[in-house]
């Protein structure tokens, strides 16, 4: 039987991620899809630690650790060097967190994508600066507690829509993916690998430590994020062609919120407001994909 996700591992056990780390699960599946001809550029993020201290390495591919804000630029340089050496086979991947992507690394990412550098940029999104102890980022969602949005100062601003920002660059391929949908994730990584130019994958990577929830909920919460339309699964080709990969089952966002300590301060009214925001964003996405609400449309069903 041919497995849709290969059983070969490029990530060793013994990494130093927290229990239930979504970023570790994401890396494991992405590398299964990419294989050994891959170079990982890792700007400062949880993975700077998860990959292990000198002289150990969790990964069986070359890893270049680099400064926080340089993911797009360092990958451009590695790609240029491989090109001039005649290596067209190796895939260059930047592997960054949401802070390194949405915030401090956004300029270098935007520059690289404007130049249409031939690389895959993966943002594993745990919705805050988790490695430094749960500070808010521009990826932190509306309603969330973090150590820099404590008490009544919980974040009252929307999460930046990073995929749309990349789509505005007319990036050849952008997609969202989730650790709870590994086959969809692996398919998108393989698809991205085959595209030339800049490719962006936004992977939802739950963080039990920072989200204040039990580690065994890591995958469940990731699945619920998709099912509630909080994190829709979709792809955009050449900045125009949208495909929604999963149609929701109409779950309410409060089911997702009530499992996480970071949202425990929210009132029913707050949850209702958040539900409206999620509905709005979803309808906007449907319009972009040319799908009328309630219709089947060009949708790949995955369950």
């Amino acid at each position: 039987m041919e497995l849709s996700v290969q059983d070969r591992e490029y990530m060793c056990s013994g990494h130093v991620g927290c229990p239930g780390c979504g970023a570790a699960i994401a890396m494991r599946f992405v590398l299964k899809a990419l294989g050994e001809k891959t170079m990982m550029i890792v700007p400062a993020c949880c993975w700077s630690i998860i990959a292990g201290p000198y002289p150990q390495s969790t990964l069986k591919v070359p890893v270049l650790h680099t400064a926080f804000e340089t993911g797009g630029a360092v990958a451009s340089g590695v790609r240029a060097a491989l090109d001039i050496k005649g290596d067209r086979e190796t895939t260059v991947v930047t592997w960054a967190g949401d802070g390194g992507t949405f915030d401090i690394g956004f300029q270098a990412l935007s520059g690289a994508v404007e130049r249409n550098e031939d690389f895959i940029y993966v943002c594993y999104d745990n919705e805050a600066y988790m490695n430094t102890g749960v500070q808010r980022s521009s990826s932190t969602p509306y309603g969330a507690w973090t150590t820099t949005t404590p008490g009544q100062e919980w974040k009252k601003l929307r999460k930046k829509n990073i995929v749309e920002a990349l789509v505005a660059h007319r990036i050849p391929y952008a997609a969202t993916a989730s650790i709870a949908f590994p086959e969809d994730l692996v398919r998108k990584v393989k698809k991205a690998k085959a595209v030339k130019g800049s490719r962006f994958l936004h992977i939802y990577a739950s963080c039990p430590t920072g989200w204040r929830m039990p580690s065994e909920l890591a995958v469940k919460i990731a699945r619920m994020a998709v099912q509630t339309n909080i994190f829709p699964l979709y792809e955009v080709e050449n900045g125009v062609r949208y495909t929604i990969n999963y149609m929701p089952k109409g779950y309410l966002v409060r089911e997702y919120f009530k499992l996480q300590g970071r949202f425990k301060h929210l009132s029913e009214a707050d949850l209702e407001q958040i539900q409206q925001m999620v509905n709005e964003d979803w309808e906007l996405l449907l319009r972009k994909a040319g799908v009328s609400p309630g219709a089947a449309g060009p949708v790949t069903k995955i369950d």
Binding site: G77, V78, A81, L82, A108
Partner: peptide, 16 residues
């Protein structure tokens, strides 16, 4: 798009 990225890109290239 910046000198910062100019040096970062060379760090990548020289590492390769």
């Amino acid at each position: 798009e910046s000198e910062h990225s100019a040096m970062a890109a060379l760090i990548g290239a020289a590492s390769a």
